[in-house]
């Protein structure tokens, strides 16, 4: 058993255990933290298969953005998780059914590729050998050359999403105290401090 196999079992075991904890932890914040652990281990598994680009994207996007967003939502929204969880046993049969279907599909897919190895030949763009070319470099090769048109349009789509989110939700409220940096900087002792003579026995 090589070093790679040992790491595979560590990552796989921790990932599954953490995934179980995500759904069984009592505190939703703990659930999100376990979810981050799952993402870390999945990234490790990607690294073992030579997909280092996917691994890094998983770290940056899922942990850096999505999981943090989850944490915000969990902490800021007042969701009664105990109530959400009360029907777990009720939904268990459906959950088991879905699990069985996914398992059956996995068997079909893996069985299919074992029974008919020639199916893999229909792939027109084979993955380059990771020893000769890292997949980050391979992606970079085509993303900004062959696929630059798609890349730019995808950028425009994201821009529309951003404009839409702002225009549909931003409201300019009138009576809000906002920070005005130029006013803050322009303050002098003469405008900021007022000296008042307090007459004895009267107060302010």
């Amino acid at each position: 058993m090589g070093l790679q196999a040992i790491f595979f079992y560590i990552f796989a075991f921790v990932a599954i255990a953490a995934a179980f904890m995500v759904i069984s932890a009592k505190n939703p914040v703990h659930s999100v933290l376990f979810l981050i652990l799952v993402f870390f281990n999945a990234a490790g598994l990607f690294l073992l298969t030579g997909a280092e680009f996917l691994a890094m994207i998983l770290l940056v996007v899922y942990i850096g953005a999505v999981a943090v967003l989850f944490l915000f939502v969990v902490m800021m929204l007042d969701i009664d998780f105990a109530e959400l969880r009360s029907g777990v046993l009720q939904y268990a049969p459906v959950g088991i059914l879905v699990g069985l279907i996914v398992a059956a599909e996995l068997v079909v897919v893996i069985g299919g590729s074992v029974l008919t190895p020639e199916a893999a030949k229909s792939i027109t763009m084979p993955i380059p050998n990771p020893a000769e070319r890292t997949n980050t470099a391979a992606l970079g090769d085509v993303l900004y050359t062959n696929y630059v048109y798609f890349f730019q349009i995808a950028g425009m789509i994201l821009l529309v999403a951003m404009i839409g989110a702002i225009v549909l939700t931003l409201r300019h409220r009138q009576h809000i105290k906002r920070q005005d940096i130029s006013r803050q900087v322009a303050r002098t002792p003469a405008t900021a401090v007022e000296v008042i003579k307090v007459k004895s026995g009267q107060g302010l």
């Binding site: 048109y149 798609f150 349009i153 789509i157 529309v160 999403a161 839409g164 225009v167 549909l168």
Partner: peptide, 16 residues
């Protein structure tokens, strides 16, 4: 791919 991206760019703006 350009079919899908064009459709999505058009529709997303229409939703807004």
């Amino acid at each position: 791919i350009s079919f899908y991206l064009g459709l999505e760019l058009m529709s997303l703006s229409l939703y807004v």
